[in-house]
């Protein structure tokens, strides 16, 4: 049977810019329901009195931010953008990257979001939070899926990748992840969400780890039972570290551990751990 031909659809850059702008403002001011729910569950199960107070403040802060239309966190992040471009979508009225950058620029200016991007050497601020970090995938269809993910520097700084030897196996991976979270302690604003990327190459493991952070909090890996099991084990080991909310000690150090995997070279076992603070922000829209 002949494959159904898809109708080529035009998508205007103006719409891309407007969507990116809207998503970054929304992501920075409205915490996802899944995260708020995870914080509420954490509050119910936390045994430390200080930990409970910290979690209460986090929930109260999310309410204030939403009501006042203020950023949940002053670190409104690097603008990470995941784009899935349908191969039958025809982008018109400009080029995709410029349209995305313009959306970021407008969001950070008009949304009163902090500009946190600078030259690595001079540390001079670029003053409009660009360049954005843009990951583009070509997929089936004629639509465009845009995911806006403001990523804070504090938790990103505690993230890491390592090329393990194949002999290290899943035990080696778990040891690496737990060590990184233990070392991070109070720094990345716990309770954290941990994205783990296994396999691929150095860069692919890092991208997998970041994509793992996009999964709704509380949802386990549905594709591979081995990974769902690893998530469960890591979640327990990390919460046993005692870091607690705000790093002030307690039962809840992580809200979730999400693991993704792909095949790798016969010589390698790449692993990346991307740490996300409790202000886990991402919003998406398909246009």
């Amino acid at each position: 049977m002949e494959k159904k031909t898809k109708k080529v659809r035009q998508i205007d850059c103006k719409l891309i810019t407007a969507t990116v702008k809207k998503l970054f403002i929304k992501a920075n001011t409205i915490l996802g329901d899944d995260v708020v729910q995870a914080l509420r569950s954490a509050l119910a199960s936390e045994e430390s009195a200080t930990g409970k107070q910290v979690l209460e403040k986090m929930i109260e802060n999310a309410n204030i931010a939403c009501r006042e239309k203020m950023p949940i966190c002053q670190d409104t992040g690097l603008a990470v953008v995941f784009i899935e471009v349908g191969q039958d979508a025809h982008i018109v009225g400009g080029d995709l990257r410029t349209a995305i950058e313009e959306g970021v620029r407008l969001a950070y200016a008009e949304g009163f979001l902090r500009k946190s991007v600078c030259d690595p050497f001079t540390r001079k601020n670029t003053e409009d939070n660009t360049p954005a970090i843009i990951h583009i995938d070509i997929v089936e269809g004629n639509r465009l899926k845009i995911i806006a993910m403001p990523k804070g520097g504090g938790s990103e700084n505690m993230s890491a990748a390592q090329m393990l030897v194949p002999a290290a196996g899943s035990e080696g991976i778990k040891k690496f992840v737990v060590e990184k979270v233990a070392h991070a302690g109070a720094n990345p604003c716990p309770p954290v969400i941990i994205g783990v990327g296994i396999g691929g190459s150095l860069e692919e493991a890092c991208i997998l780890a970041k994509k793992a952070l996009l999964r709704p909090v509380g949802e386990k890996n549905k594709r591979d039972e081995r990974l769902a099991q690893m998530e469960k084990e890591l979640y327990k080991s990390i919460n046993d570290l005692g870091i607690g909310p705000g790093g002030l000690g307690g039962r809840i150090s992580a809200l979730a551990v999400n693991v993704e995997m792909m095949p790798c070279h016969i010589a390698s076992l790449p692993v990346a751990v991307n740490i996300q603070c409790h202000v886990a922000r991402h919003k998406e829209l398909t246009i």
């Binding site: 239309k69 203020m70 002053q74 009163f112 902090r114 520097g153």
Partner: peptide, 22 residues
């Protein structure tokens, strides 16, 4: 150790909190 978000109209300051000290 802090750098605030820009001040929106009608506010004293934008969102502000601690950055990592190390």
């Amino acid at each position: 150790y802090a750098a605030p978000a820009p001040t929106p109209p009608g506010k004293v300051i934008g969102s502000i909190g601690p950055t990592t000290s190390y």
